[in-house]
Write a protein that binds this DNA or RNA. Structure first.
Lengths: 236, 236
DNA sequence: GATCCTCAAAATATCGATATTTTTATTGAC
DNA sequence: GTCAATAAAAATATCGATATTTTGAGGATC
């Protein structure tokens, strides 16, 4: 069986069914397709994805270490619930890590980094213009936004910092998606992206950090705002 | 089968064999009993722990998200290798997170926190005196040291920060164990613990942070020295 | 009416066997 | 002697079935 797998964020070939299960579950949790607090019964997942029980169990085990599912011995597992408190916590942690990685990246980045960053920024800005006109693809924006932020910190030489930054980025994305931040004007965000880009190329770390903190804070605020009224429903 | 499980860091009852496998493997990797780079063959682990293959696979999956084992599709898995670069990275990250958690904890801590901290410090100091006399138990020291550091940051209200701090603490411990830091005089470390304790109770965050940075840096240096004699930790 | 049993139904966790893939060893050609 | 092709061995990944545990409904007791 040689099935071609397509993924928005293709990350190397999947050699096992367990890896595929991991990716599928991960995407469905982050995108919100599997709601926070939802009980994840093996039989239900087997039917949903058409996979065996063993690979699914393995995927759930990995996701529990990623803190996307809660695994309770003999009592099955559920999608980790969301809360205002958690959203705030994640926002703060993302700030801390993203800013640190950005500082290092700006200090270390060479020509190659600048070029990749410019390319990522260009792609993102082009799409943001079409979104302003109401014809852009939101999933595509998520992807390019992700790539731009990754390009910003790509020259950071701390693997652990990048790993944790990524973890917080993904967790933050889950909240962003849930609260449908698309209603917030993209124009502001687009301007922030440009400011980030220019500060980075100018090697103006302090300026970049300030913008980044505003940028993340704004996103978190939007999440919290659309979250607070209906908190009860989300907490299960 | 009602077997009593004893663990140095007992963390609630284990309801499944998979959880036990996870704990056992985790301890053996951190303690160095399973050497870095070692190929982890299922059959070998089955024999070692007397457990079935399924729970072991599940444990390995979780450990791969903890970055203690590397899982490569269809090619088995191995204990994550160690390197000078990684040791330095972990030391820096531990500094960043521990210091941040400490600041918050000192700001938020109440009476209850002070009491628990004093108790943890007292237990640790008492043991350190016996170790100075050459009659102390090193495993016991690991445990009390762990508890003291945990008590310091216990009043931090960011779950994510505490989670990541713990991750780095464990990773750091793995390096500390490998390099047998016991040869380093415990007297200095003991003095640092006292300084940390007093600064925390004085609510002198800046002082506490300075001591903590020295404390972690010293440990990292010791690790690096016994790892690659000659090479030195460079300020990042 | 509330609390405590008991028993059946559902779900989870684990085992043993099998299919698939990778690794190792062997052979034959150049 | 080296390389390539191939066959055998080992290891991994997955499935299907079974054992164990939890959950929930219905009745008996206070």
């Amino acid at each position: 069986m040689a099935e071609i797998l397509v993924s928005m964020r293709y990350d190397g070939p999947e050699r096992t069914i367990a890896e595929r299960a991991y990716r599928l579950l991960r995407e469905d949790i982050i995108s919100g397709a599997l709601a926070p607090g939802l009980k994840l019964k093996i039989e239900m997942l087997r039917a949903r994805y058409g996979l065996g029980a063993a690979p699914i169990r393995e995927a759930l085990a990995r996701l529990s270490s990623d803190h996307l599912v809660k695994l309770e011995g003999q009592r099955g597992c559920e999608v980790v619930p969301m809360s205002v408190r958690d959203a705030r916590d994640i926002g703060n942690m993302r700030k801390l890590l993203e800013v640190e990685a950005l500082r290092i990246s700006i200090r270390n980045g060479g020509d190659e980094w600048e070029n990749a960053l410019a390319a990522a920024f260009h792609r993102l800005e082009r799409l943001e213009r079409t979104i302003d006109q109401g014809i852009g693809d939101l999933a595509e924006w998520e992807s390019l936004n992700h790539q731009f932020h990754k390009a910003l910190v790509a020259a950071c030489d701390s693997e652990w910092l990048l790993r944790m930054r990524q973890l917080m980025f993904d967790q933050h994305e889950r909240y962003r998606r849930l609260s449908r931040v698309k209603t917030v004007a993209t124009r502001d965000i687009s301007l922030e992206h440009r400011a980030l880009f220019e500060a980075a190329l100018d090697r103006n770390a302090e300026k970049a950090v300030t913008v980044m903190e505003t940028h993340i804070g704004r996103t978190t605020d939007a999440v919290l705002q659309s979250f607070a009224p209906g908190e009860r429903a989300l907490a299960r």
